[in-house]
Amino acid sequence: MKKIYSRPQSLYDVVTHYCPGCGHGIVHKLVAQVVDELQIREKVIAVAPVGCAVLAYDYWNFDCTEAAHGRALAVATGIKRMRPETVVFTYQGDGDLAAIGTNETIHTANRGENLTTIFINNAVYGMTGGQMAPTTLLGQKTTTTPHGRKEQEGRPLKISELLAQLEGVYYVERVSLHTPQQVINAQKAIKQAFQNQIEEKGFSLVEILSPCPTYWNCSAQEAMDWIAEFMVKEFPLGRIK
């Protein structure tokens, strides 16, 4: 019998620190699978900013750097401009990319930097204990919107649609993880985003709706269902650019 599904070479065989049912674990695997498939493990450099996934270098078997909160795309710009032959990607959460780092996100995209961004949208700040994020839904309870997010606390930020307006942006797709089929779509989008960089097409971003059972206060399956029922309505899936 032959192994038809196993751990990718680019993923260390260790237990992660992520909570049970967390989307980060799935996406780490997808990124590692794509890196293996495109045979770029020896050329790829990851930039992991502050967030639950800042420890990604404990799981990926390739070069990686941390970045200050919100500054991953500036760090990635510095790396990519000096080593265009490498494949540089950032792996950012919603707070990092669409709150503190919005300026870097917009201007890096606007410069059309030849980079790949994996954007994990789980509608909360996970690492710090479940606070409101720019993508928190209206009415969604978090530790800083105890009675549900109200409009003057901002509406769910459609950063992907925003970025799609910029000419420097080549590819924007929003995918999800709430079923195996969605996970397969997510992997295709991630592969496309990396492929774009290899073909020097410019800035590619994949937004991934990701479950956070711990701070959505529900089980892993309920989190997946919540994405399917609510998040997908607010953040429609599909190719945006």
Binding site: M1, I4, S6, P8, V15, G21, K29, T179, P180
Partner: peptide
Amino acid sequence: CLCAIICPECCIEIE
């Protein structure tokens, strides 16, 4: 492989 695909810990292998 649906189980392995959805698994966040990559701890299921299929042969």
